[in-house]
Simulated assay, not measured.
Amino acid sequence: MSAALQLFNMCEAEKKDLYAVLGATSSDSVQQLRRRYQQLALQYHPDRLRGECSLEAQSGVKKFLEIDAAWRILSDQESRRQYDLQRRAQELKQDWPVDSMVNLEDMIWDQDDCVYTYCCRCGGGFSVSEEEVEEETQRRQQDGEEDGAVEGQHGGVVVCCDTCSLSVYVTWSSHRKTPRL
């Protein structure tokens, strides 16, 4: 494993935003990142902090190491790509603010489109396909087998309104019946 990837794993364990460490954004070029790195490295380099009290020096060294690790990862095209992909995956996993919970049984089954729908207060709607319900149910059952989960566990997905920014958490029993006709 390369040194950059080892640093990547170390930073991932600490959940650091490497762009924020450099005071940069993911859209910055390598040259922009290099400038930010050089400015911060000069500011926090351990040689510049020799006259400081030990707590300030320790804090400066820690900051310098974070800056250096961020630069090593973001300056290498491949490790930056891997970091960006992992960062995006984490963003997609993050929980949405849920405005309400809805039971699948309270939703309307649309036989033609094979989706469950529920009206939003804005006039729009929430919809979840039978396929999504089946996939989540299967995933939960597999996780339950591995974790030794008990019978009657509930499945669920977050569904966003097709018109506004509201979202609901749709729940159902993992042992539910087939859709209503």
Score class of each variant (00 low, 15 high):
Val30Gln: 13
Phe64Trp: 02
Leu49Asp: 06
Asp84Cys: 02
Trp71Met: 09
Glu66Tyr: 00
Leu85Gln: 11
Gln90Val: 03
Ala89Val: 02
Cys53Gly: 14
Arg36Ala: 12
Leu55Asp: 10
Arg35Thr: 14
Glu78His: 13
Asp68Glu: 15
Glu78Tyr: 10
Ile67Trp: 00
Ser75Glu: 11
Leu49Glu: 05
Leu74Lys: 03
Ile73Ala: 08
Cys53Tyr: 12
Glu66Ser: 06
Leu92Glu: 10
Lys63Glu: 10
Lys62Gln: 13
Ser75Ile: 04
Gln43Thr: 00
Ala69His: 10
Tyr44Lys: 06
Arg36Pro: 07
Gln38Cys: 06
Leu49Gln: 06
Leu42Met: 07
Ser54Val: 15
Ser79Arg: 03
Ile67Met: 03
Arg34Asp: 11
Gln38Asn: 08
Ser75Pro: 04
Ser59Phe: 12
Ala57Thr: 10
Arg81Tyr: 10
Arg36His: 04
Val30Glu: 14
Ala57Asn: 12
Leu85Gly: 08
Ile67Thr: 01
Asp47Cys: 13
Gly51Glu: 12
Pro46Cys: 13
Gln82Cys: 09
Tyr83Val: 03
Glu52Asp: 10
Ala70Ile: 04
Leu55Gln: 09
Arg81Trp: 11
Arg36Met: 11
Trp71Asn: 09
Ala57Gly: 10
Ile67Arg: 01
Gln77Tyr: 10
Arg88Gln: 14
Ser29Thr: 06
Arg36Glu: 15
Val30His: 13
Ala89Thr: 03
Glu56Thr: 06
Gln77Ser: 15
Gln32Ala: 11
Leu55Ile: 07
Gln86Arg: 15
Gln32Phe: 00
Arg36Thr: 07
Ile73Asp: 09
Asp47Asn: 14
Gln58Gly: 15
Gln32Gly: 08
Ala41Tyr: 04
Arg72Ile: 15
Glu91Val: 06
Leu42Thr: 07
Ser54Tyr: 13
Gly51Pro: 01
Arg72Pro: 15
Gln90Lys: 04
Ser75Trp: 01
Arg88Trp: 11
Glu78Cys: 11
Ile67Asn: 02
Gln77His: 13
Glu66Thr: 06
His45Ile: 00
Tyr37Ile: 09
Ile67Phe: 00
Arg81Val: 11
Leu33Trp: 01
Arg36Gln: 13
Glu91Trp: 02
Gln31Trp: 14
Ala69Ser: 12
Ala89Leu: 01
Ala57Phe: 12
Arg50Trp: 09
Ala69Met: 11
Phe64Leu: 03
Ala89Asp: 05
Gly51Cys: 08
Arg80Ala: 00
Leu65Val: 14
Leu92Lys: 03
Ser79Asn: 05
Asp68Cys: 13
Gln43Pro: 03
Lys62Phe: 09
Glu52Tyr: 03
Gln82Leu: 15
Asp76Met: 01
Gly51Thr: 06
Ser79Gly: 08
Arg50Met: 12
Ala41Arg: 00
Cys53Pro: 14
Arg72Thr: 15
Gln43Cys: 05
Val30Lys: 14
Arg72Gln: 15
Lys62Val: 09
Asp68Arg: 14
Gln38Trp: 03
Gln43Trp: 00
Ser29Leu: 09
Ile67Ala: 00
Ala41Trp: 01
Tyr44Ala: 04
Glu56Tyr: 01
Arg81Phe: 04
Ala89Ser: 05
Glu78Arg: 12
Arg34Pro: 01
Gly60Arg: 05
Ala70Asn: 07
Arg87Ser: 09
Pro46Met: 06
